[in-house]
Simulated assay, not measured.
Amino acid sequence: MASPRRSSPSVGVSPHTVRDHLKNVFRKTGTTSRTELVSHLFSQWYAERLFHH
């Protein structure tokens, strides 16, 4: 995954803004890293639909 410094120009915000948004998402989802966030989102949104239909 791209670092805040690399991804911020492509969306037109500062690296600090990207970091702040990531911190808020981590807090709201109870995760602490991007990897953990992806795992959490997969298990919450996709695993149920893929494996239980």
Rank of each mutant, 00 (worst) to 15 (best):
N24R: 15
H53K: 10
Q44F: 03
S10Q: 14
T29C: 06
R6M: 12
R49Q: 12
R19H: 03
S14L: 10
S3G: 08
S33T: 14
H16G: 07
A47C: 12
Q44W: 02
Y46A: 00
R19M: 09
S3E: 13
E48G: 10
R34T: 14
S7V: 14
S8D: 02
R49P: 01
L41Y: 08
L22C: 05
H53E: 08
D20K: 14
Y46M: 01
T32Y: 05
R6G: 07
K28N: 11
K23V: 07
S14Y: 01
T32E: 11
A47Q: 14
S3V: 12
V18M: 08
N24M: 13
L41E: 07
R27P: 02
H21W: 15
V13M: 04
K23Y: 04
V13R: 03
T31Q: 03
L22H: 00
T29P: 00
V38T: 15
V18Y: 10
K28Q: 12
V13Q: 01
R6Q: 14
S10M: 13
V13A: 03
G30F: 04
E48Q: 14
S33Y: 05
L37Q: 14
G12F: 07
S7R: 13
F26S: 00
F51E: 03
K28V: 04
K23C: 00
V11R: 14
L50P: 04
W45K: 11
R5W: 13
P4C: 01
H16V: 02
G30Q: 04
M1W: 07
V25G: 05
S43L: 08
L41D: 05
D20E: 13
Y46S: 02
P15L: 02
Q44Y: 04
V25L: 12
K28W: 10
F51S: 01
F51I: 00
S7W: 11
Y46L: 07
L37T: 06
V38N: 12
S8L: 01
F51Y: 07
T31P: 02
